[in-house]
Design a protein around this nucleic acid. Sequence first.
RNA 1: GCGCCUGUAGCUCAACCGGACAGAGCAUCGGCCUUCUAAGCCGAGGGUUCCGAGUUCAAGUCUCGGCAGGCGUACCA
Length: 542
Amino acid sequence: MNLSHHLIDQLRRAMAKLQFPEVPLVLEQPPDPQMGDRSCTVALALAKALKRPPRQLANEILSAFPKDDPLIGRVEIAGAGYLNFFWSLDAYRVTLQQILTEGEGFGSSEIGAGEKRLFEFVSANPTGPMNVVSARAAAVGDSLVRLGKKTGFEANSEYYVNDAGKQIEMLGLSVQARIKQIQGLAAEIPEGGYHGGYVKDLAAQAIAKYPGDPVGASAREMGRWTAQRIVEKQKSALDAYGVHFDRWFYESELHESNRPEETLEKLKQAGHIYEKESALFFRTSQFGDDEDRVVITSDGRPTYFLPDIAYHLDKAERGYAKVIDLWGPDHHGHVQRMLAAMQALGFPDDFLEVLIVQQVNLLRSGQPVKMSKRTGEIVTLEELVEEVGSDATKQIFLSRRWSSHLDFDIEAAKDRSEKSPVFYVQYAHARISSIFRKAGAYQVIQDGDYKKLGAVEERDLLRALSLFPDEVEASALQMAPHRLNAYLSELATIFHKFYHECRVLNEDDAPLTRARLALCRAVQITLKEGLRLLGMSAPEQM
RNA sequence: GCGCCUGUAGCUCAACCGGACAGAGCAUCGGCCUUCUAAGCCGAGGGUUCCGAGUUCAAGUCUCGGCAGGCGUACCA
């Protein structure tokens, strides 16, 4: 039972009865609760097509609307032609009961209809530690997968490991140079190599691993081995962050089964490949890219683009109807060519969606944190989680749209005083838990108790709770976890007001106590589930 | 040069793919702890939504032209 879905059904029936054209029916929240619980602008939208005044249309829809729906208290027409709906007390009672019986299942829906969706994110190169953008993408991607599952999609997460190609050799050469240095030999890290301190650590490990002659191993072999170590570190860092992937997909798997070659063959047969100056070009410019792209270099090596296409083909072959890639801002130049590739291979336009997770400016007490990629001096995901904590870190990332460039102040994020809004939602959950610790044995709400919930604060809470399924759905469909985050803050605010105004435990009024405890339980369930969808914990105590 | 992202309160960000008087937090000022957690609550001030046109009954949101910042622009990934 979803109140909003029910209302939309009723509206659609009324519209059909009037033989109005079919238009998308969207419900909104009126700016002021006084105006109603949900509103619809369909009359405004239809005014133009039907060439009639919106208020008149609203009146007709209203007259065709069922008068005896027990869940709808009343309907009003306001302003230019808004239809404003008020839930009945019955609707609130039903919602509350529903939350108590469904528990964490509250807010789940089937709109995804089992569609298979793959979210690929982080996919940091196995040549060094992950940075803050990876931390941001991990928070967003993880939440999107959770939201997807919640709304009936078969959603999975995947991390693509670029463990092949030139960069791996370069990594091997860098480690070998460090090994020589450790052994007192003269050696320089090659041009374009990796300078970070972690390379030294890995070199030391490599000496232990290859006691005979570490430098004698091929650069590729050394690179592979090192990359594997780095991937293990990435896994454990993400683990500490609370982000798990359904699958780690290795580029080397693609090469082992000749997928890039097969892909190239497919492209050739479709006539998308031509040779120029002894390199092979993919005619991506015919599909919206600025220029054609090289897939095989003039010295015969595939560029990263080819295995990338093969990888996306593999995703499709595994049955995913839609794949969503979260990329960093440094890759936005590649979006067009990948979309072009998908189109050239005959996929629907919306098969691939690339979300560019924007950059993060790290600050410390207002001062930019200096970082150098070249020398490997960066703040890593690991350090960030270690210093700030995973919940606080995620809270900051998930309170903004992924597309906004954001400032992340480490000192502000660490602040645990009342100035910090980071733990606001969790605090509401902890407060409720505290009430239940004091309440003793939980008494189930009884039918007559509902009448006791008449205060504004109680009503506001019930209204807010009834919105949770809508917010979950909107957040999932719009791929906007920050919406859910904002909703939870709002719910927490309303709860804190309620807490301030309405004493829950009243020894002289058992029905009121039962009713308010039921309300608290419902809020607790909703907060906990909401936090889970954001990948955050719901502490019992703070 | 070209492409992408961004521009909203002093600061950090929202605004439900065009809807009602643009909202929060922080900062500033003023109240509330002998009562279930003050990591909380209540109140005040604070806006030409970068600028200029256009589309629309309706524009922070869409289109075009500027301005500013960021990122990208490899036969590297």
